[in-house]
């Protein structure tokens, strides 16, 4: 089943066309990698899928439903979650609280409930803590739950963003360069976590520059260049695609 269908998607910022007439789709349960040089439009694509800004034209269907015109928070309620290329940790909160915000869509205490925390509200709060701790355990941060999020080293902050994003139990998870800045051990851990998430039934779309990782985990790869889709296929197909090699290695790479 197709969980995400992008068709004829275009986004221009003034004179710059960051995403140009793009078509691709994601099947439920897949791990899809989006690759391409810096400025190719990968992050813009993610921002369009999560309705950070509207497309100039084209459509995005999530579970056969057009998401154009929705707001970023409504997208979360539909079941799409993401991490950010430039970390967006809540530095004013503890590690645990960061993940607890991730439970926002799965809980419902409002202002009145917050003012008068009756037993039902307290039970919900306890459930939020429990499931948040589980997500922290998944990324190996359970013992840092009460530390200030801003005190974590970079690699752990990236893991925290993943824990926070999966806390809402999304159907589709977008990871924007999750391995960037990680050391080899952390990258291994990341790969294991991504597999675990896939096994839990989460469909994953990720942007990544680390080719070794991409070739290992992706079921399919979408290659972007200057806002255009250059190629799409299995890791094997992409590795042997002349256009992709040209874009990555320049004309010299092609000629020898």
């Amino acid at each position: 089943m197709k969980i995400l269908e992008v068709s004829k998607l275009t986004k221009s910022f003034g004179g710059v066309t960051a995403v140009n007439d793009m078509n691709f789709s994601v099947n439920s349960g897949e791990i899809i990698a989006v690759i391409g040089p810096n400025g190719a439009g990968k992050t813009t694509l993610f921002n369009l899928i999560t309705c950070i800004y509207p497309p100039t034209s084209g459509s995005i269907l999530f579970k056969q439903k057009e998401i154009r015109g929705l707001t970023a928070d409504q997208i979360a309620h539909l079941g799409i979650s993401r991490t950010f290329q430039n970390l967006q940790i809540f530095n004013n909160m503890s590690v645990l609280e960061n993940v607890m915000v991730g439970r926002h869509t799965k809980s419902k205490t409002g202002l009145l409930g917050a003012i008068f925390p009756l037993p039902a509200v307290q039970r919900e709060e306890e459930a939020i803590v429990q499931s948040s701790l589980e997500k922290l355990a998944l990324v190996g941060l359970a013992d840092k739950a009460l530390e200030a999020a801003s005190n974590l080293p970079y690699g752990e902050q990236k893991m925290l963003e993943i824990a926070r994003a999966v806390a809402m139990e999304p159907e589709l998870l977008l990871l924007d360069e999750p391995a960037a800045g990680l050391n080899p051990t952390e990258t291994r851990d990341l790969v294991e976590i991504i597999y675990k998430l896939r096994d839990q039934g989460i469909t994953i779309l990720l942007v990544e520059h680390d080719m070794e990782t991409v070739m290992e985990i992706a079921d399919r790869i979408v290659v972007l260049n200057f806002g255009n889709k250059l190629a799409e296929g299995t890791p094997y197909e992409i590795q042997n695609n002349r256009e992709v090699i040209a874009a990555y290695l320049g004309e010299e790479g092609l000629s020898c």
């Binding site: 999560t50 950070i52 707001t71 970023a72 928070d73 997208i75 979360a76 309620h77 979650s81 993401r82 950010f84 967006q88 940790i89 809540f90 530095n91 004013n92 909160m93 609280e97 915000v101 991730g102 926002h104 869509t105 963003e161 926070r164 994003a165 809402m168």
Partner: peptide
């Protein structure tokens, strides 16, 4: 508080 920390992240987690 999450809005204060990062509006982007808050919205992407479903905070209106």
């Amino acid at each position: 508080r999450s809005i204060h920390g990062s509006e982007f992240a808050a919205r992407s987690l479903g905070v209106d």
